[in-house]
């Protein structure tokens, strides 16, 4: 458990370092992109579908899987859509 807390603390500091310098024009894609990463809870949802579960637990696990999948798939796709617009301008050579 202390090992996990160690990982948690280090990751928080790493996250702060990674994000602190993001220019404001990228704030929205950053937010929706990191939002997609928070869908990592899908791993927990998948593991919760173990076949020895009660019906109730299985139903909840399926709902959790579906919700996390929306978060992941939707989050990544929508971020990509936004960033595609940012890049389009980049390639147009108007700089």
């Amino acid at each position: 458990m202390t090992m996990l807390i160690f990982i948690f603390v280090i990751s928080i500091f790493l996250g702060v370092e990674l994000i602190a310098k993001v220019p404001s024009q990228l704030h929205t894609p950053l937010m929706s992109g990191s939002n997609a990463i928070s869908g990592i809870t899908i791993v927990g949802a998948l593991l919760a579908t173990t076949s020895d579960s009660s019906t109730f637990a299985t139903v909840m696990a399926v709902v959790a899987t579906a919700a996390a999948t929306v978060n992941v798939v939707g989050g990544y796709l929508v971020t990509d859509r936004m960033l595609a617009m940012f890049r389009k301008k980049d390639g147009s050579g108007r700089r």
Partner: peptide
């Protein structure tokens, strides 16, 4: 889960 969750947690707090 811990690594990615806390990365997102930190980025949200920065924003």
């Amino acid at each position: 889960l811990i690594v990615s969750g806390s990365l997102v947690g930190a980025s949200g707090i920065i924003l």
